[in-house]
């Protein structure tokens, strides 16, 4: 066990954890930040995606020790029910999902994509999401939401 300082959505937390413990379990079990979701534990599906240093990363694959001291963003920190982030609003407007278990990965990957490239082409959107899984097949709605969000982001 070691002690780590994590900055999540601008808030500092001190946690005791095994250094090789994936960030995912610290966020979920220690900090009760539930939106990064366990899908595979193998970095193959993206349900656990968080943003570290402005990059969408798979929290099931990065040890807590390497995330310490770097800014971590989760879905909880994106917007609030009163003031949804424009990307969240676009996904709501498009009613983009079925069960929504995977949506954390899509929304956070959309955030990372549009922060770096506010007006991606169709090809760029599809490429950015090729590493994500949606078992329900909600892709048509997701594409519509990302297009909508890219139109809204100046």
């Amino acid at each position: 066990m070691s002690r780590f300082s994590l900055t999540v959505n601008g808030q500092s937390h001190t946690v005791d954890a095994d250094p090789d413990c994936p960030l995912l379990y610290v966020l979920r079990d220690t900090l009760a930040l539930n939106n990064p979701r366990f899908g595979c534990g193998l970095g193959q599906c993206g349900a656990c995606t968080v943003i570290v240093d402005h990059h969408a990363v798979r929290s099931c694959r990065i040890p807590v020790s390497s995330a310490a001291g770097r800014p971590i963003g989760t879905l909880d920190g994106l917007g609030t029910p009163e003031h949804p982030h424009p990307i969240q609003q676009a996904f709501i407007d498009e009613q983009a999902f079925q069960c929504g278990y995977c949506l954390n990965g899509w929304v956070m990957t959309a955030k990372a994509l549009l922060d770096g490239n506010p007006h991606p082409s169709e090809e760029e959107i599809r490429r950015a999401f090729q590493g994500l899984i949606c078992r329900c097949g909600s892709h048509v709605g997701i594409l519509a939401a990302v297009r909508r969000a890219s139109g809204h982001q100046a």
């Binding site: 979920r28 539930n34 909880d76 609030t80 029910p81 949804p84 709501i92 009613q95 999902f97 929504g100």
Partner: peptide, 21 residues
């Protein structure tokens, strides 16, 4: 009618069985 579960899911306030402790 917008689905009642979509906004809470997108906003991250929804809880799945995986979150039961």
């Amino acid at each position: 009618v917008p689905r009642v579960d979509i906004a809470p899911k997108v906003l991250g306030t929804f809880r799945y069985v995986t979150d039961v402790r």
